[in-house]
Each structure stands twice: as structure tokens, then as C-alpha cells.
Amino acid sequence: MTAGPSGETAARLLAELPPSPAVWCSGLRKRYRRRTAVEDVSFSVGRGEVVGLLGPNGAGKTSVVKILLGLVRPDAGEVLLLGRPAQDPRARARVGYLPELFRYQPWLSADEVLRLHVRLTGAAVPEGERRECLALVGLADRAGDRVGGFSKGMQQRLGLAVALVARPELVVLDEPTSALDPLGRADVRDLLLSLKAREVAVLVNSHLISEVERVCDRVVILDKGRLAASGTLQELLGQQEVRLRLDGVTARAEARLAAAGGLTREGNSFTIALADEDTATVPDLVADLVALGVRVHAVEPARITLEERLLGILRTGSGGERP
């Protein structure tokens, strides 16, 4: 290739462009005979971003994941993985995947499975790195054992190692903790955090909302094949709330409470949706209340959980308003 002045300019312009998202999909649709599995789903996962894919059973989460990876052909819609159209298998060169139905060749050993996947990817991963990968998921001492003898949990751990072994830039995990004990779940959470620290993009589909809440930057919620809501946790869960248990609240004190944000009262319990994220708001409020002669029994931060929010979205069927 000759790199003339215009070629150099183009190359520089390309290099200066922000990197394309790890996942970009638009207008995905999939019907199985008369049943609609996925309808008009669009979202993206930025580089290094951890995104949770949530929704009830049959919401189309696994179908969406399979469409992204080229395992299912969409009826309509476009997918780009790491900037390449998904029809091109090379788009998956830096993608790791743990399927919901995780099974690996039972006649191979754990290390042979990793070697196979490294070879299929075309990467060169030395043995030491493969061992580290197995150690990361707690299978260091089982590298030479046949997969056929593994428990479900161990196969899922192996699946995580397979997803991570070829130095991915995007990892897609479909129910990564379904077969794991609480210890294993904690390991997966740590793993997700370490991927996040290494700026590997992650799309994780999980029923364990509390875990998604702890590690994800953004959440995409599907319901009946459609996008029900998406956004950062901040956007979805709204602003912080504070709950106070008070005695001797006068009209002036109540006015002071209302000035801090949206106020709801149930007997002695007052809940305020804080108007701003200023850290001084709550201490100032408490100091003012005490000055006004109010007796303060308790001040607790309250935040609607992702689970409550998810249930609200799914029950009311609306993504825009808070329940």
C-alpha cells in the first residue's frame, strides 16, 4: 500500500477518531415462526464499559446475545462488534463468550479446550498465560483432567476461562453464575471488576440483579423482546433519597424539609428525594432541624434498588416514569 500525503491524512484522521463501541446494534428483530423473540432492539456497549442485560424469562436476552455473536440470524437489524459488521467472522476475533448453555468437548482436557479456542481465534497465547487463565477461575489443578468428569459449576468456570483466554476486548457472559455457589458468584463479581479495571467491555446477562447493580455501569432492560428501558444506574434509579424519623415537627421545620427536595410523610417518617447530589445537603438539613427544636431519631440514606426499579418497569410496562 502506498501512503501518499492524502493516505497519511486519512490514517491520522482515522486514528484520531474515538474508537467505535464494543457493541453497536440497531433495530434487531427476530421471529420464530409466529412468536416474536426480539423486536426493534437497539443499544450499544462502549469500550471498557460493563453493561447488564436484564429482563424476565423469555424477554429475548439470550436471543439478542446470540444475534450479536452471529449464532442466530436476525430478520432485520444491524450489528457492529468492535467496529466490524457482525456478518464478518473476523468481528469476533477479540470477543469472548460464555453461553447460557455451557458445554465443552467432554473428551478434551481443560487445557486442551483452551488451546482449541486459542487456535480457532488465531491468537498466540503461551502455555503460562493459559494456566493463569485457568487459575483465575479456580481450575489451576484440573488443567489436565477431562472435561467430561467436571461438575456443572466447574464447566461454567471453564467457560469463563474460555471466554477470557484469547485476550478479548469484549466479553459476553450469558448467565455467568447460574451454576455457581455463592463463593463462585463472588469470584465472578471480582472477575467482572478486574475486567472493568483492564478496560475490557463486558455485556452480562444475569438474573442476579444485586450483582449487576454492583458492577455494571449501565443497564439495558428487555421485556417481551422489546427494549423496556436503558441507561446508567443513576438515570434509572433516579436521585438519592433520605429517610428521617422525627418528633416535634413544626410547620417551619416541615417547610425546611420540603426545601431540601420532594417530601413524603407517613406519620413520623419523612422521605425526601434529594434535589441535588451536594454532600452537605443532609448534614445542613439535620443541623437546621435540630436548631428548629425537632428531635431527630434516625437519618438513613435510601435508594430505590435496581430490583424494585426493574419490577416497576416490568409491571407498569413503562420505561420512562419511576414507579
Partner: peptide, 10 residues
């Protein structure tokens, strides 16, 4: 399900 992991490779 063995095919899923293999065919998701490039």
C-alpha cells in the same frame, strides 16, 4: 451446546 462456544469464534 458445544457448538455455541466454537461457532462464536472468528
Amino acid at each position: 451446546g458445544v457448538a455455541l462456544a466454537v461457532l462464536a469464534r472468528p
